Amino acid sequence: MRKLVILGTGFAMATKCFNTCFFLELEDGSLFLTDAGGGNGILRQLEVTNFDYNKCHHMFVTHGHTDHVLGVVWIIRKVADLMNKGKFEGQFHIYCHDVVKDMLEKMSAMTLKKKDFARVGTDILLHEVTDGQRVDLPQFCMTAFDIMSTKAKQFGYELKFADGLKFTCLGDEPYNEHARQYAEKADWLLAEAFCQYKDRDVFKPYEKNHSTVKEASELAEELGVKNLVLYHTEDKHIATRKADYTAEAKEYYHGNIFVPDDLDVIEI
């Protein structure tokens, strides 16, 4: 059984929840991590979920904003430390575009201990992916794509499993038609929804290049998506977010709606 484990659901400046990141647990027990939040809080989130680093050999990083990339340095440090103690077998692969690759190499060089940094490039491998590039992994075929961000370069991805399931991560900005082939008819679509439409004048999502629940839900309906996961939200309505966002989404989308809290587990 495949599972989507949500590590964080909040936007960059969230304090009531962790930054948006997650991992997939696959049928064979292997783990696939996406982004890592903005600091070493990622280590706690993973610890709470009983994350087994030895089962995670592949990771994807969408972009270089602080709330997505800084935690990756902590992942690199953790994996390097495990390797140096003989507690991690094999290599650890990180997939990202050229800007993120350069950032991670430089931050790792400046912040890691020499023996940990020695693992980068040998046992911890940073793979640059380009728009439309396909990567065949043991559990699925991954295709990376440029989401055409107007802020910082950002990639999403489509995963295609042997049984035909299509899982698409759109990153944390509004949909661009460039991504249609990867998002249309997806079994699972992960999309940002910064706030409810009625609160747009309060949170000003469009100024931040984000969308509301309404727009994300209309998109999923148009694309014929079966299951919609909404995250990367404001954190002022955490207590009622699941119910409120779900209610708004149902007005525009007729598939299955998931508005997870941090550490929620969704069977896919």
Rank of each mutant, 00 (worst) to 15 (best):
H58F: 13
M1A: 14
S30P: 09
Y157F: 15
H178A: 12
V213G: 03
R44S: 15
C96A: 14
K106M: 15
R180N: 07
G90T: 11
E158P: 00
P260T: 03
H68D: 01
M148G: 07
V73G: 01
L82F: 12
G37C: 07
K115T: 14
D136N: 12
A144I: 06
A152T: 14
G8V: 04
L7G: 05
H65V: 09
K166F: 04
Y175P: 00
W74H: 13
A118F: 02
L7A: 04
K55Q: 15
E47Q: 13
T240V: 15
T15A: 00
N84Q: 06
I6V: 15
Q154C: 11
I266D: 05
V69A: 06
M142S: 08
T62L: 08
R241T: 01
P138H: 11
G90N: 06
K106V: 15
L125Q: 10
V5A: 04
L31K: 08
L26A: 06
L82Q: 10
F167A: 05
E89R: 09
F194H: 10
K204H: 13
Y206C: 09
H57L: 08
H254S: 15
K55A: 11
A249I: 01
L189G: 05
F145L: 10
D262A: 07
N84M: 06
L137T: 01
T130F: 11
E222V: 05
L189Y: 04
K226F: 02
G156D: 03
T240C: 08
G41K: 02
F155I: 04
L112S: 13
A14Y: 00
G156N: 09
K226A: 10
G29M: 12
